[in-house]
Amino acid sequence: MLQARGLAKRWPGGVPLFEAVDLDLAPGELVAILGESGAGKSTLLNIVAGLDRAEAGTVTVSGTTITSLGEDELARWRRRRVGFVFQAFHLLPYLSVEENVALPLLLNGVAAVERRGRAAAALAAVGMAAHAQRKPASLSGGEMQRVAVARAVVHRPALVLADEPTGNLDEANAAATMQALRDAVKREGAAGLLVTHSAVAAAAADRVLRLAGRRLGPA
């Protein structure tokens, strides 16, 4: 599903951040990357998402080499094939929970009836169906992150990327979020990649890697 080969990235001053990074993810597999702050975990995630450019190497997702795509092609590719979960949730405050979840479907031009059905199913899968009409501000942090997980998979992406998804949550909510994320990845057959400081979060993954000394390797 995801193949990264020979990825290299430098800090703005030219000091290498990481180099010769290879990464393979299979459908339905959830992989966690651990690492110290500043090791380049988020940068690697952003390169895989097409939000940042590597100085060397290629990233291929479901046969598409995204490192050769232009800015707008990348945006369209992300729209169809990638789901995101962020540390700070990033739910739009002026949309309801259901509308937030349906946002990727809206971007992809899915019809209203289908949008509502799929958003409701995604919310039900993370246990948030009862909150569909509420605004994000009325939810707890854990609830917001489960809504974000539903949004990340509602359009059946090939790749689900999570950047410190439990960073703002307590242990119980972190565990619930990771369970929801793992279930979603398995259910949709997507490749899941999460970067985290948390060994607890990483424990929910099928495989754990560590980015250290500019190299990616087994934890």
């Binding site: 945006a75 992300r78 729209r79 739009l92 992809n108």
Partner: peptide
């Protein structure tokens, strides 16, 4: 700013 960044991350083009 973050709202726009989210929309871009979710696949909205700069032109969009």
């Amino acid at each position: 700013r973050q709202e726009f960044a989210l929309l871009r991350a979710l696949g909205l083009t700069a032109g969009g």
